[in-house]
């Protein structure tokens, strides 16, 4: 009882002092629910670096990997909503309801979306010397030979798996799924000729594209990639309905003060506008996600609805 009272008092004191001083007056933890080194981690670290510079505060990245990102997400949404614990998440979040039978939260969006840091188009890749020169030839072959063309993913229920399911439904083809442990291994499988194609976001593809080890048949998004203008968009390649874009965003626990959320949204978009950030994102053929906080919320809800449709017609078993 005494301890509980003490905790309440301490919390109140720390909360009030947090508001009294200029935010941030102590280190802000940016929790990444993925292992260090991946795309989300790398982008989060860059954002943290820029935020630290701009606010003269300290933003520290903390990796909390596990269970398809749910462990880190759960930790953040249970943290004190004081703006000192933030979450870096990616498009995988919108898939979670269709991967797990039960999630450790009830709400559709259990946090306040702050800003989208990066938008990454999805490209369809075949090996550099593959017989498929364009999307139409691949789709036609797959239509004539169901269950023959193989595609690699980062495992059953991973984001590339969902992307590939959406692709199959949009193109009206049936391909053979070859799961790998992580998208990186699937890429290795592609360049060593084990599989015919992968659907990955641009950061994983850039270096292999430059070396001509892989060929991109189409890219998602409304316009071609600045760094690879030869790659047609899906619409140009004959699949106008197909548009999956992966994203990396920053969120805060529900209840975080509005001022802090909007301050962070402004700071992050300011960071995204800086030239070194543009170079950094451009280097991996990603784009700055210049959205208001409620635009991000809409994005998550749209994604949720889309994947619900895809999952309904796909053969993806829930855990």
């Amino acid at each position: 009882m005494c301890i509980r009272l003490l905790i309440v008092i301490c919390t109140l004191v720390s909360l009030s002092s947090a508001f009294a001083a200029e935010y941030p007056d102590k280190p802000v933890r940016l929790v990444v629910s993925w292992a260090p080194g991946g795309a989300v981690d790398v982008i989060a670290r860059k954002v943290a670096q820029k935020l630290s510079e701009q606010t003269k505060g300290t933003f520290v990245v903390e990796n909390k990997p596990g269970a398809t990102g749910t462990i880190g997400t759960q930790q953040v949404i249970r943290s004190a909503p004081d703006g000192y614990t933030l979450l870096a998440l990616d498009n995988t979040f919108a898939l979670l309801p269709f991967v797990f039978k039960k999630l450790p939260w009830e709400q559709e969006v259990p946090f306040i979306p702050i800003a989208v840091a990066a938008l990454q188009p999805v490209v369809i890749l075949v090996k550099g010397d593959s017989p498929y020169k364009d999307l139409a030839s691949l789709v036609n072959y797959a239509k004539a030979n169901p269950d023959t063309v193989t595609y690699g993913t980062g495992g059953a229920g991973s984001a590339p798996h969902f992307s590939a399911e959406a692709f199959q439904q949009a193109a009206g083809v049936k391909l053979m799924h070859v799961p790998y442990k992580g998208a990186g291994e699937a890429m290795t499988g592609l360049i060593s000729g084990q599989i015919d194609m992968v659907l990955l976001s641009t950061p994983s593809a850039v270096s292999q594209l430059k070396a001509n080890r892989v060929r991109a048949l189409a890219t998602s998004g409304n316009k071609r990639l600045a760094s690879f203008p030869n790659i047609p968009t899906f619409a140009e390649a004959g699949m106008p309905g197909f548009g999956i874009t992966n994203w990396v965003g920053i969120a805060a626990p529900l209840g975080t003060p509005k001022e802090i959320v909007s301050r962070l949204n402004v700071e992050i978009r300011k960071a995204l506008d800086s030239s070194d950030m543009k170079d950094f994102l451009g280097g991996m053929s990603a784009e700055a996600g210049n959205l208001e906080a409620d635009g991000f919320l809409r994005l998550i809800k749209e994604e949720n609805a889309r994947w619900a449709q895809v999952a309904k017609h796909a053969d993806i078993e829930k855990q």
Binding site: I3, L6, I7, I9, C10, V13, S14, R29, E62
Partner: peptide, 14 residues
């Protein structure tokens, strides 16, 4: 190294 361990934990309101 900056490992995420607090010197005084939640019992002390940190």
């Amino acid at each position: 190294l900056g490992l995420p361990m607090r010197l005084f934990g939640s019992w002390f309101g940190a």
